[in-house]
Design a protein around this nucleic acid. Structure first.
Lengths: 205, 205
DNA sequence: GTCTATAGAGGGATAGAC
DNA sequence: GTCTATCCCTCTATAGAC
């Protein structure tokens, strides 16, 4: 009985450390990229020794991959946590675009994640593919099937329309937040969403 | 006379080395990012000694900044080398979108540049701003003033429309080439351009 | 101006005590 | 499982010969 308790506690502590390491790794890798991050600083940020890091993860690459997959999973769940899309496009779609854009514009962790994924996409192509498969694609499909379901919108190619919608939002996030260009190329979120809604809704012949 | 000749030759050789170093730096930094690039390999790729690199550039950061500014300048000139936009939107605009998209999709150096700029945009915000100021903004303005000049298009907000157009193209380049997602999220260039042209041209009330 | 050689710091990864 | 101490390598940057 006492023995079992000890085992449970030990297992808990061990899992605790794994989470602390992943948290420290997140800080380091998101801030400095793969090559710029150091395992010493990961260990320090996690509050453990470097040897402990290596006892839970094979090497720097292994830790990095687990971290990215974990972050992608987290984002994935936050997408599928939304209720299914139904109702008036002029309200539902506008709400969706506004909410998605404002969330991306505010969420510094998301921006750092996106920046790191793109920055490392030459060295770690599988990881950017994980992101596309688990986040970009499912998100696109949800919106595409909504657009297709609203036949009154009369959209000739809903899938292409989704590329346009997502690309427009992405462009604003990259130019303004990731590349720090708010002052260089100003554009109001609402103005962009208005223009998109005009294209989607008002152009139904 | 002979002296002058010698000086000229020496000056030429020196400039030659600077260019060779910048070329080597381009290979290294585009392939591995700032932190992942090593000055030894830059020197080796340039065919000079490391000390020579440091005699022409202050340090790693200095070399990196000069390189990025040079690359941005090169791209800038290739944009302003295009003749001014005039004529039928259905031909001129479609041609522009198709050409711009296909060029970006083919040009591996451009993709690596974009990847690096985004990847380093947290550590070097001024450099991504150089890119926005010297490439993204001028390009946008050219297209915006063309759209505004064609009053028959009846575009309520030409600047917002440019965000949408450029964002859509950018999205395809990032998802397909930079993040290696051609197979995961397929989309034909022509299909995307068709959808964009439909929105721009056919929606003129 | 350019080289070789090297200083000096910090990186990833592990051995061995507990 | 976790730690401290350490190995060995590569990195940036420079000193000094030519």
């Amino acid at each position: 009985m006492a023995r079992i308790k000890i085992n449970e506690v030990e297992r808990e502590n061990s899992s605790d450390k794994v989470e602390k390491i992943l948290l420290g790794a997140m800080q380091e890798f998101l801030a400095h990229g793969y090559a710029g991050a150091s395992m010493d600083k990961v260990a320090a940020a996690a509050g453990v020794s470097k040897a402990t890091v290596y006892s839970h993860f094979q090497d720097k690459q292994g830790l990095f991959k687990v971290l990215v997959e974990q972050l992608a999973k987290k984002r994935f769940e936050s997408i599928f946590g939304t209720e299914p899309l139904e109702g008036e496009p002029n309200i539902v779609l506008r709400g969706l675009l506004t909410k998605a854009l404002n969330q991306m514009l505010k969420d510094k962790e998301y921006q750092a994640f996106q920046r790191m994924l793109i920055g490392e996409s030459a060295r770690f192509p599988e990881l950017s593919q994980v992101f596309l498969r688990s986040i970009a694609k499912p998100g696109s499909e949800i919106i595409a099937s909504y657009l297709a379901s609203r036949s009154e919108l009369n959209i000739p190619d809903p899938e292409a329309m989704v590329w346009i919608l997502m690309g427009s939002l992405l462009h604003l996030v990259i130019a303004h937040e990731i590349m720090h260009g708010k002052e260089i190329m100003p554009m109001e979120s609402d103005r962009l969403v208005d223009a998109l809604m005009h294209l989607v809704v008002k152009c139904a012949d």
